[in-house]
């Protein structure tokens, strides 16, 4: 008994020392830095020795007991990892009304593209009996481009349109969205043969894989075309400018998805400088991989209202946009009111 008590005390004190003297400042599995050290539960939990192994133990026990959910993600078929997001029809309605009010106020041709999440699109790869409550969210009226059926079809055909371990569309998925929007936006979409596909990363593990503390071997592929390196892409948050459509520096960063323009920034521009029409693309990260396709037809001013601190109304006044395209994932528009600030 005495040995057990002394051993327990020793273990507790060793844990304390390990936590206090923890050398880790970056959590590889979560792609973030630890919080500043303090006597707080968050700081202590982040610095627990063997934290990742313990988290995996927790995950494995939950999976073994059949719960099939960890940190809001769950396994589907074919190696796909899905995320559960809390969505609300009311929040979606408010965002769509904000977008419509914006369109009515500004008198510019405005279109809305709502991109289904993996849970909406890859229905064939969801676990058996997974509910279909999200269907009630999909009420496409004239303002919202109805691209979900096409994506479901392509997903059902086994096309690689979503990353297995990330919530984003692949470049192929974005290509299908690009094709679907051609009628609405009035451009002639280029066929697949006009692009050459190059795989730039073959071991990409994204957000869903991180939630599940696992890795996937997703491929980031780029749809290149002749002359695409003549575009100039500018990140207006950081001031970084580069030739071409992709920021290759980001490929080896903690988040390789940053290779696409507008990833995690409030505003970016893609220009060719040949007096082309300008499209205002108001989007979340689902617009990231769509932008390079649209850039073939328009100069783009890309705004992510979640990070953009300026006034979109001000941008409208200062620039001569031919069209406005809202491109959002369903999970974004149905979980947070992000578009209310457009009208200020």
């Amino acid at each position: 008994m005495k040995i057990f008590v002394m051993l327990s005390l020793t273990v507790a004190l060793v844990m304390l020392f390990c936590i206090v003297l923890c050398p880790i400042d970056y959590l590889e599995s979560e792609k973030r830095y630890v919080s500043e050290f303090s006597i707080s539960e968050v700081a202590f939990c982040e610095r627990l020795p063997f934290r990742e192994q313990l988290m995996r133990l927790n995950r494995d026990v939950m999976l073994a007991l059949g719960i099939n959910e960890f940190s809001g993600a769950f396994f589907g078929k074919n190696g796909y990892i899905f995320s559960n997001e809390t969505v609300s029809g009311d929040v979606l309605e408010k965002n769509l009304l904000s977008a419509k009010a914006f369109a009515d106020k500004n008198g510019i041709s405005t279109h809305i593209a709502l991109i289904g999440s993996k849970t909406d699109v890859l229905v064939h790869f969801l676990p058996e009996l997974y509910g279909d409550e999200r269907k009630a969210l999909w009420k496409c009226d004239g303002h919202v481009a109805d691209i979900l059926p096409m994506l479901i079809l392509k997903g059902g055909e086994g096309k690689y349109i979503f990353y297995r371990g990330d919530h984003h569309l692949t470049s192929l998925g974005s290509y299908y969205v690009y094709k679907s929007l051609s009628n609405a936006l009035g451009y002639d979409a280029y066929g697949a043969s006009d692009f050459s596909v190059s795989v730039v990363k073959s071991d990409f593990s994204g957000s869903d894989a991180r939630k599940m503390l696992t890795v996937t071997d997703d491929r980031i592929a780029l749809f290149r075309y002749k002359g695409d390196s003549e575009y100039v892409t500018e990140n207006l948050d950081t001031g970084k400018k580069y030739n071409g459509l992709y920021d290759y520096d980001k490929l080896f960063s903690p988040d390789p998805y940053g290779i696409f323009p507008i990833a995690d920034c409030g505003r970016a521009k893609i220009t060719l400088g040949e007096g082309r029409e300008m499209l205002l693309l108001i989007c979340d990260s689902y617009g990231d991989s769509l932008a390079p396709f649209l850039a073939r037809h328009y100069d783009l001013d890309i705004v992510d209202p979640r990070y953009f601190g300026g006034s979109v109304k001000g941008l409208i006044d200062e620039n001569d946009y031919a069209k406005v395209l809202f491109c959002f994932g369903m999970d974004t528009l149905a979980s947070k009111e992000v578009l209310y600030k457009l009208n200020f």
Binding site: V42, L48, L54, L57, N58, R59
Partner: peptide, 9 residues
Amino acid sequence: LVLSCLAAG
């Protein structure tokens, strides 16, 4: 399991 629950945050 207690430690794993604490680690899972």
